[in-house]
Design a protein around this nucleic acid. Sequence first.
DNA 1: CAAATATATTCTCTTGCAAGCATATAGTCA
DNA 2: TGACTATATGCTTGCAAGAGAATATATTTG
Lengths: 114, 114
Amino acid sequence: MRVSEAFQVLAEPARRQILDLLRERPRLVGELTEQLGLPQPSTSKHLKALREAGLVRVGRDGTRRWYRLCPEPLLAIDQWLAPYRRMWESSFAALERHLDSMPDDDDPPAKERT
Amino acid sequence: MRVSEAFQVLAEPARRQILDLLRERPRLVGELTEQLGLPQPSTSKHLKALREAGLVRVGRDGTRRWYRLCPEPLLAIDQWLAPYRRMWESSFAALERHLDSMPDDDDPPAKERT
DNA sequence: CAAATATATTCTCTTGCAAGCATATAGTCA
DNA sequence: TGACTATATGCTTGCAAGAGAATATATTTG
């Protein structure tokens, strides 16, 4: 699915940082490299992943490449999120209180046998 | 970061499917296993990932475990998404048109040297 | 063409899962 | 206690992906 790919790509902090920078304005690879403090090849590889996920597009200008944001895949995520958003926007709190009456059990340590 | 973990966990389709099922109501592991068509151990492992990401909680009832949705981490993602949402909600289209005047260059094949 | 610059790709190494199977744990009931 | 059910964990294997270094490609300039 397309959404899976977007989630996967966004799981990397450096890539979200790139998107944050591109939100402001289009940027050159060198510029991004400097801002991220990464070696240039790493930046290029992250940009490739973002490109393949449709999150950025690139335009040439001689030997330079301007990367710009392409938010459509984010719209897909936003739409996946929509029904959940309704949960915390509406009667979620009441449901939560009801269910909290059950005992929680996050990760009980193993007990020895009697 | 907490957001990275959420993205990572949501990248797996089966896990999103689990959340979709839990959105309706709390469920037992066996129930989820049946719906997903996965072997039970796989379901348990996905549930563990979801637990550790804070996306679900579990309550005991004898030998059964009720899993329920816990949407807070989704709220974090929603908030990360917010500034981007503004882009497609406002003047995004105009900006897009402007930038599209630049030539695109998605993956040009390598050429031989003269 | 050669050199310099900007960016991409390749390679190796290592790590992180996920699938699949076997088995452990815990609770219930006879 | 022993069988039975519900769920979790461990182990192995294969694969996808990230870090880092080296190098390739393409463009501009002299």
